[in-house]
Nucleic acid binder design. Structure first.
Length: 884
RNA sequence: GGGCGGAUAGCUCAGCCGGGAGAGCGUCGGCCUUACAAGCCGAAGGUCACAGGUUCGAUCCCUGUUCCGCCUACCA
């Protein structure tokens, strides 16, 4: 492949395309089914086939990719299992909308042709999100890509359904479920989103049957009264202890309904009398069961009133409400309609108000499945990180209710059940039975409902690996190492995978669950189309490059905190990418061929220092990633690369690199430069895979893809002595620069400096590194004084345990210098005062650990010394000033 | 109703086992110093929301308060 030019500014797009193709062609993301290396596996949270990449996906997959690339660099055999979800309701809605544009409906098409249409749609658009994940750099093992409607996964679904049914953990029955009149299907409790709305609480008078007076009930949904079959009061409510009649006359319907007594009724709410509509309210349904009440279904599946609603038949439920209220008002039975704020359920797919409806559905008995799933987390077999989410998990699991799994839509896994036309026997089996096992009848009607999409997603960690076959993949990669997901699907998905995994594989589906935050907009608002505040990740990638975007996501992925995304941030990290790029450009000017590191004795102080800092950066990165602290890892790398490697090492190494007259230090610097850059790139690679791969191929001493390099060891070049000595140098140089900045001397003007070093080691370091200090601080000379005596016209800096005089002949503004010293002195005195307050405290001396006391004492000594020096200089400056 | 999280520099956020608070961006001053102006050097800027408590010592632990955000729930 042609080497591109190494331009001043990094140009990401061509680089990204080129390297992604290279990775895929060379199978660098492929997991091995047979391997001696440790296994590491992640199953992707499968995005909806209909979806397009949003910020949530971008964060989620960036974090997974960082982990996968990191583990590969550590030598693991990594499986990142990719795929998509058929997303029953969502996909059906999208395809239906598409049909509507062509003037068609699914009903007109018929079930079979509609399903074909969905598959066609999937062929055309279903890979969009996969391509987008690739642009993000996702290193999935794409050859293994799965789809929840694939034959293999469908088999797993049927097997699970049949087994659970036979174990009595799946049943069918008539219950109140959440019905979406728009999607025309039942929904699980979880799929209902509650929203506070301003409604009204209507007080309606139900006259007694055959007696004067009546009972006033309170309701927010007056239209349901048409289906009332009782009025309930609390058994111990004195107000209703003696009633003139045991029944009331249901207004508008002229039906007599009994007054019953049930402790469910809350005496303090409304009027204390509750209308009971068993067909349209879950609590009323229970009351109805307890009292043997009939259930009258007045609202149909289309949201319109049924024949049971009498003359209201055919009216939309909300229109009906208005009319019922109007008629009651006319009859003088509407006592009042006060404003009332309450929660109303909405369909999580289409936002339509949910109708609780009596209906025959299939359910999973969840409690027996939930118990092992609770235990697994309690016992730490699966860790939830951050831990706080474990509480949420327990809370939900412990109060779990049966799961309605049947959906009245067409796109999904058919429920494998058949009903005998002759005897009504229900058969649940993997394949359609030939004839009825009970009566021998041959006419068997297949169940028309399909399964909840989450039913198949619950199997994802093992169905993707070939279950129910006993595959090599399962043996090697199940349980998966970690699941990375957003908290919004903790119940929908994580909890259910836990239940299914434990039940069918007798082991947890994942060792760790890393729960990350939501990506919000700059103001902290949830991104949504209706708010119009959506930032498209692909546009961000177009503008700033994938690497900058990924690094931003990682840098802001602090545990337990939402990410507020703005392009400004990404721009900042694009600068970082560019910085790396330019550091590499610089390095390449000096690197030729591979050079081994010389022994430590031949390395300069800066060489030893940067190698030590590299080891430290490797250590911090490793520790942070092992703990899923992505932001810590990103920060450590940023600091190392920019503020240590670029700001100090490269500048410090320039003299050696640029001086051909001294081959030995030059060779050492070259070797170190090459080594540190290579290893830094490897450390960075999980975060910014493209630019690191690109640079890698330019560097001498590298081979193959950086994605298969070895993650640097943290222990290698630790050198505390070098770190301390370099610290002195940095402090001294910074002090001189400070003087220069504060006194307004042009950076170009070389200055003379004289140093009085109190501690011999400080003098030794500065003397040994004289040339370097001069260069970095832009000095024309650096000499040493035996006593702290300020030369004429010199500014003073106290730093690194030394006094540094900077000659500013004729330029020194005494007033300004005095002000500068005063400011410095003020700071020191304030710090010292705080320290000394501690040391006069007998309790502190007696009770604090010796090492803390020692530390404080040495701080006191150091600050005291600084204070004395500053005072002395200030006095002299003042004296000089007033004298002159 | 129950639960969880947050409040730290102008902005956005880090801050591990309690030992006197950091970064990025922004601001101010100075620099085109041949890797990088997407850059370099320097500086300013903080009652760590408020009130108590524990402790020799609290941004950190405990209690309460205020203000935000989220999850959850069958008072119609």
């Amino acid at each position: 492949m042609a080497k591109p030019s190494f331009d001043k500014a990094y140009e990401p797009h061509e680089v990204e395309r080129r390297w992604y193709a290279f990775w895929e062609e060379n199978g660098l993301f492929a997991a091995e089914e047979e391997s001696d290396r440790p296994s590491f596996s992640i199953v992707i949270p499968p995005p909806n086939v209909t979806g397009v990449l949003h910020m949530g996906h971008a964060l989620n997959n960036t974090l997974q990719d960082i982990l996968c690339r990191y583990r590969r660099l550590c030598g693991d055999n990594v499986l990142w299992m990719p795929g998509t979800d058929h997303a029953g309701i969502a996909t059906q809605n999208v395809v239906e909308r598409n049909l509507a544009e062509r003037g068609l409906t699914r009903q007109a098409l018929g079930r079979e042709r509609f399903i074909e249409e969905v598959w066609r749609w999937r062929e055309t658009y279903g890979s969009a999100i996969i391509h987008q994940l690739k642009r993000l750099g996702a290193s999935c093992d794409w050859r293994r890509e799965r789809f929840t409607m694939d034959e293999g996964l469908s088999r797993a679904v049927r097997k699970v359904f049949v087994d659970l049914y036979r174990e009595g953990l799946i049943y069918r029955g008539d219950y109140i479920i959440n019905w979406c009149p728009r999607c025309h299907t039942a929904l699980a409790d979880l799929e209902v989103e509650h929203e506070e709305v301003d409604g009204r609480l209507y007080h309606i008078r139900y006259p007694f049957a055959g007696a004067a007076g009546g009972l006033t009930v309170a309701t927010t949904r007056p239209e349901t009264m048409l289906g009332d079959t009782a009025v309930a009061v609390h058994p111990e409510d004195e107000r209703f202890a003696a009633l003139p009649a045991s029944a009331v006359l249901l207004p508008l319907m002229d039906r007599e309904i009994p007054v019953i007594r049930d402790p469910y009724v809350e005496r303090g709410f409304g009027t204390g009398a509750l209308k009971v509509t068993p067909a349209h309210d879950p609590n009323d349904f229970e009351i109805g069961r307890r009292h043997g009440l009939p259930a009258v279904k007045v609202i149909g599946d289309d949201g319109r009133m049924t024949a049971e609603a009498g003359r209201f038949q055919g009216l939309d439920r909300f229109a009906c409400r208005k009319q019922v209220v109007a008629e009651l008002e006319r009859l003088g039975l509407l006592v009042e309609a006060r404003p009332h704020r309450h929660a109303v359920g909405h369909c999580y797919r289409c936002r339509t108000a949910i109708e609780p409806n009596l209906s025959r559905q299939w359910f999973v008995r969840t409690r027996p499945l939930a118990e092992p799933a609770i235990a697994a987390v309690r016992e730490g077999r699966t860790r939830i990180i951050p831990e706080t989410w474990a509480n949420t998990y327990f809370d939900w699991m412990e109060n779990i209710r049966d799961w309605c799994i049947s959906r009245q839509i067409w796109w999904g896994h058919p429920i494998p059940a058949w009903t005998c036309a002759a005897c009504g026997e229900v058969h649940v089996a993997m394949e359609a039975p030939g004839r009825c096992t009970r009566c021998g009848g041959s006419e068997l009607a297949a169940e028309e409902d399909v399964l909840d999409t989450w039913f198949s997603s619950a199997l994802w960690p093992f169905s993707t690996m070939g279950w129910p076959e006993d595959t090599a993949l399962l043996r090697r990669f199940y349980p998966t190492s970690v699941l990375v997901t957003g908290f919004d699907i903790l119940f929908f998905w994580v909890a259910r995978m836990m239940m299914m995994g434990l039940h069918f594989l007798k082991d947890v589906p994942f060792r760790d669950v890393y729960v990350h935050a939501l990506v919000r907009d700059e103001e902290g608002q949830k991104m949504s189309k209706s708010r119009g505040n959506v930032i498209d990740p692909l546009e961000v990638i177009d503008r700033y490059g994938t690497d900058a975007f990924r690094f931003t996501l990682a840098a802001f992925a602090a545990q337990g905190r939402d990410i507020k995304m703005s392009e400004k941030r990404v721009e900042g990290y694009r600068h970082f990418i560019n910085k790396i790029w330019n550091a590499a450009r610089f390095a390449l000017m000096h690197l030729e061929g591979v050079q081994d590191l010389p022994p430590a004795s031949e390395l300069s102080l800066a060489d030893r220092w940067i190698l030590s800092r590299l080891a430290n950066a490797a250590h911090e990165t490793r520790r942070a990633l092992d703990a899923y602290r992505f932001n810590d890892a990103a920060a450590a790398l940023y600091r190392f690369v920019w503020h240590e490697f670029c700001d100090w090492y490269l500048e410090a190494a320039k003299p050696a690199l640029q001086d051909p007259a001294r081959p030995q230090p030059r060779a050492a610097a070259r070797a170190v430069l090459g080594r540190v850059l290579r290893e830094a790139l490897v450390l960075l690679h999980p975060f910014i895979p493209f630019v690191t791969e690109e640079i890698w191929h330019h560097l001498p001493g590298t081979s193959g893809s950086i994605s298969r390099a070895a993650f640097p060891e943290a222990s290698g070049f630790r050198d505390p002595g070098a770190e301390e000595r370099m610290g002195i140098l940095i402090e001294a140089v910074t002090a001189v620069r400070n003087v220069r900045g504060e006194t307004g001397i042009a950076p170009g003007q070389a200055l003379e400096a004289l140093v009085h070093a109190g501690r011999p080691e400080v003098r030794e370091v500065l003397a040994a590194q004289r040339e370097l200090v001069m260069r970095l601080a832009r000095l024309s000379s650096l000499s040493f004084l035996e006593a702290p005596v300020r030369p004429r016209g010199a500014a003073t800096a106290v730093a690194a345990g030394a006094t540094i005089y900077v000659r500013l002949e004729g330029v020194l503004d005494f007033a300004r210098e005095a002000a500068r010293l005063e400011k410095e002195l003020g700071k020191v005195e304030k710090e010292l005062a705080a320290i000394e307050r501690k040391l006069v405290n007998a309790d502190f001396l007696a009770k604090a650990p010796a090492e803390v006391v020692h530390k404080v004492r040495s701080q006191q000594a150091e600050l005291g010394e600084r204070r004395e020096k500053l005072r002395a200089h200030l006095d002299r400056i003042r004296a000089y000033d007033s004298a002159s």
